[in-house]
Computed example of a mutant assay.
Amino acid sequence: MTDPQHTRQNPATQHPTPEFPSQDQPHPGWTGPMDPPPDHGEDSYRGTGRLTDRKAVITGGDSGIGRAVALAFAREGADVLFTHLQEEENEARETARLVEDAGRKAVAVSCDIREEENCRALIERAVAEFGRIDVLVNNAAYQMSQPDGIEAIPTEQFDRVMRTNLYGMFWLTKFALPHIPEGGSVVNSTSVQAYKPSPHLLDYAMTKGAIVTFTQGLAQMLAERGIRVNAVAPGPVWTPLIPATMPDTAEFGKQSPLGRPAQPAELAPAYVYLASQEASFITGEILNATGGTPLP
């Protein structure tokens, strides 16, 4: 049987390339209707014990990058608590199944991280389930394309983007830190948008730039406590958020030098590496996974 995780392939043609069929979904989007279907590593990711018996919290773990990270962490030996929105319960059940099929504990929690008390309760739940938190992955995010410019961004949207992408990350990290032991880590999801902002994603790009700064500053703050803080900066990734927030998905990802978007499964190894002891001298870093788009 071919092992696609380790078999040499042309990265430009390894996964589907645009043009994609026209598709549109209401937010937050679902995996099932997507064409082509996203690859989370279900048939390819092979763990090697790099996170054996670790306890991980992942926000936005129901689909997309979050699901791929939850699957990879579980196959590397970690138990996983992950968040989802109430309307994503069916998606969350599939992530939980993948974690449990890997022989690890899965805890799916419906949680709106825009509220401070929800974040506090989430961390309390994780500690009750696991006793500690070895890895916190701040991955949940909200975006909405506004091609008509800043004048078209309503305050309600701006507030949701800020509270989901920044407030939630801040609160969860703050509440989790007393429960993260030496050798633990925080991994944040930033974006190519932090460095090369698309005008139609102005508010989203703002938050991704802030996440870079938060990651680098917190890493210095926590170094003496033996806790590492890093981030992954993806380029275009084929997740339900795309048909749910973009007006046209036909050529999504075509602008990357590899000519296509990433599949979630291609991002998961970056999170595994940063969470693992193999990255013991890596902190305050941004791991860029952009398909060849050069970043600072």
Rank of each mutant, 00 (worst) to 15 (best):
T2L: 15
T2Y: 12
D3Y: 05
P18M: 09
P18L: 10
P18S: 05
E19D: 09
E19C: 08
F20H: 05
F20A: 09
P21V: 12
P21W: 03
P21G: 08
S22D: 12
Q23I: 14
Q23H: 07
D24W: 02
P28S: 07
T31Q: 10
D35H: 10
D35A: 13
D35R: 13
P36F: 02
P36C: 10
P37N: 04
P37Q: 14
G41S: 10
E42I: 15
R50H: 10
D53G: 06
A56Y: 01
T59N: 10
G66N: 07
R67C: 09
R67F: 03
A70K: 05
L71A: 08
T83N: 08
H84K: 07
E91G: 12
E91N: 13
T95Y: 05
R97F: 04
E100L: 12
D101W: 04
D101L: 14
A102I: 11
A102K: 12
G103I: 13
R104N: 06
A106D: 06
A106W: 06
S110T: 15
D112E: 13
D112I: 14
D112C: 13
I113Y: 02
R114P: 03
E116N: 13
E117Q: 15
N118D: 11
A121S: 14
A121Q: 15
R125C: 10
D134P: 07
N138E: 06
N138I: 12
G149W: 00
I150C: 06
T155H: 14
T155C: 13
T155S: 14
F158C: 08
D159M: 10
V161Y: 03
M162W: 10
M162P: 00
R163S: 14
N165I: 07
N165M: 06
M169D: 01
F170M: 12
A176F: 06
L177H: 01
L177T: 11
P178Q: 01
H179C: 06
H179A: 04
H179E: 09
I180R: 05
G184Q: 03
V186L: 15
V187Q: 00
T190Q: 02
Q193W: 00
Q193P: 00
K196P: 00
P197W: 01
P197E: 01
L201G: 04
L202N: 11
D203Y: 02
D203Q: 10
Y204D: 08
Y204T: 12
K208M: 04
A210L: 09
V212S: 09
T213F: 03
F214V: 13
Q216K: 15
L218K: 04
L218Y: 00
Q220S: 14
M221K: 15
L222C: 07
A223N: 00
E224P: 09
E224Q: 13
P243T: 11
D248H: 06
F252P: 03
F252C: 08
L258R: 03
G259T: 11
P261H: 02
A262G: 14
E266Y: 02
A268K: 04
Y273M: 10
Y273V: 05
A275V: 09
Q277M: 07
S280F: 00
F281I: 11
T283H: 04
G284W: 00
L287W: 00
L287A: 12
N288C: 11
T290N: 03
G291Y: 03
G291M: 02
T293S: 04
P294L: 13
L295G: 04
P296T: 05
